[in-house]
């Protein structure tokens, strides 16, 4: 089973990101689960969401404590929440930031990190507002690229099934897929 944990703030779309990723994997004939853990359901409050992907039926209903991947939708959460808690030894952290992935890996104390300026990608694709860009679809596109867990087309198809601004969101995912950088220069 592949387990992915999302960290975001209320209103940024972490929950939808977990669902889009699950939908993409579902389209590749996997069993999936996507669910949020809400503290307080308020805009701006830290939100955790989870995606589980397996080629077998998933019965475990517990939250994710030892993720293979951590996806951070807002870099300021790094100092507010223990984002790398329980990350598997060879796990990968994907962060929405302009920063360099090697420096990010060092800062987080992890072996592998990837960085994507999803905020800029979202603004370029007119998703959300300048001060409240919706970065979730971009970051799932970037995740597809650095993890290989799901194909780009599956992510795009999952996004095209969203009720609003589907094409702009799909383009954000494609852009982020191309722009994401991973530590170690890979």
């Amino acid at each position: 089973m592949i387990e992915i944990r999302f960290h975001g703030r209320g209103g940024q779309g972490a929950v939808v990101a977990s669902k889009v990723l699950a939908d993409a994997a579902f389209r590749e004939n996997n069993d999936v689960q996507a669910f949020p853990y809400f503290g307080v359901e308020r805009r701006g409050a830290p939100v955790t969401a989870f995606t589980k992907i397996d080629d077998r039926h998933i019965r475990n209903k517990a939250m994710i404590y030892e993720p293979d991947y951590v996806i951070i939708l807002e870099a300021s959460l790094i100092s507010a929440v223990n984002v790398t808690e329980g990350l598997k030894d060879n796990g990968l952290v994907l962060v929405n930031t302009k920063d360099d992935p090697d420096e990010m890996a060092k800062r987080l104390g992890v072996k592998r990190a990837a960085c994507i300026d999803a905020t800029q990608v979202a603004i370029d694709n007119k998703l959300g507002s300048k001060f409240q860009p919706i970065v979730n679809t971009a970051i799932v596109g970037a995740f597809s690229s650095v993890s290989g867990v799901v194909k780009k087309e599956s992510v795009v198809n999952a996004i095209l099934a969203l009720p609003r601004y589907a094409e702009r969101n799909a383009q954000a995912a494609r852009d982020a897929y191309d722009q994401v950088r991973i530590s170690g220069g890979a």
């Binding site: 699950a22 069993d31 999936v32 689960q33 996507a34 669910f35 949020p36 809400f38």
Partner: peptide, 12 residues
């Protein structure tokens, strides 16, 4: 059905 563990969880 359990809150969140089913109500807010997406599954096939």
């Amino acid at each position: 059905q359990d809150a969140f563990f089913l109500s807010h969880t997406s599954e096939p």
